[in-house]
């Protein structure tokens, strides 16, 4: 309806313009030709618009596989383990507090707490072994290469800070893993190493005390306690922000659970990787 009105208006305008230029009225045949011309033009415009909408829609729905199922499952097991360790570790560290007292007196006993903590520890150690095994596979080796820190990460960081401060107008282009993701990965590696090593010394304290001096045991206990708090604070600031509270992904970045990332986010967050994938595809398509 709106289109036919539009069409009528356009025909009318063209007619008036032609009449003014020719200084006479258009005859019926001429008017018919004008009408056909306008219709053809409008139809072409409409088709172009539809094509554009379809392409945008396709781009939005197009996704890339960012993580394999293996990686997603590793993250899931790690997350469950860390949550169990946190909820049972914090009340031990803050045993003087009222909430710790409430937990131990009314929710679960210290003995149950100890069992849950060790279940969490077992999950963490299990996923650690799994991850080390996975790093030896072709996929793991490739991912590890991508995760290695490079000088570019430092420049990216500086460039990003400049961008955020408004000192530069362009965001640095990240590859498969940005410096913040690499930082978190290596922080996790370090944290897990400290926690597992010190935790095993505490868990198997009989063996520890049979072979190592008491002060080493005390150091392990203090490191376990200190590193734990550091890790938890990193999780509720760095990780919570990047995976949940960040406006780009709020309320939750599902990529680590589904393995999928949209083309839009791929282009925004990992432009170098995107370009590389596109080049590879083009290369594969060419014989």
């Amino acid at each position: 309806m709106a289109d036919s009105a539009n069409e009528e208006r356009l025909v009318h305008e063209l007619q008036r313009e032609l009449e003014r230029e020719l200084d006479r009225s258009l005859d019926d045949a001429e008017l018919q030709r004008v009408k056909e011309l306008v219709r053809a033009q409008l139809e072409a415009e409409l088709r172009a618009k539809q094509r554009r909408i379809a392409r945008e829609k396709e781009q939005a729905e197009e996704y890339f596989v960012r993580f394999s199922l293996n990686v997603c499952l590793q993250h899931l097991v790690l997350a469950i383990g860390v949550i169990l360790l946190t909820i049972t570790g914090l009340p031990i560290k803050f045993h003087d507090s009222a909430w710790a007292e409430f937990i131990f007196r009314h929710i679960w006993s210290l003995e149950v707490n100890r069992i849950i903590h060790r279940v969490g520890a077992s999950l963490l150690m299990f996923v650690t072994v799994w991850h080390i095994g996975w790093l030896m596979t072709r996929e793991g080796r490739r991912e590890l290469r991508e995760l290695l820190p490079r000088v570019k990460d430092l420049w990216d960081f500086i460039a990003n800070v400049k961008f955020m401060l408004g000192l530069s107008s362009e965001r640095p282009k990240f590859g498969r893993y940005s410096y913040s993701e690499k930082f978190e990965y290596w922080a996790l590696v370090w944290g897990t190493a400290v926690m597992v090593l010190s935790g095993l010394m505490l868990w198997f304290h009989r063996i520890t005390l049979a072979y190592l001096p008491k002060y080493i045991f005390d150091v392990a206990l203090q490191a376990h306690s200190g590193e734990a708090l550091l890790a938890i604070l990193a999780l509720i600031t760095w990780h919570m922000y990047h995976a949940h509270l960040n406006p780009e992904v709020f309320p939750m970045n599902m990529t680590i659970f589904t393995g999928k990332i949209s083309k839009k986010r791929m282009i925004e967050e990992h432009p170098l990787e995107y370009e590389q994938i596109m080049r590879e595809r083009a290369g594969a398509e060419r014989p």
Binding site: V219, G226, L233, T237
Partner: peptide, 22 residues
Amino acid sequence: AGIVFWVYEFYRWLTIVMTAGF
């Protein structure tokens, strides 16, 4: 506490600096 005190101090400052940085 000797060496344990130094581990405590190390983690205390590391935690403060890192969290403030985050």
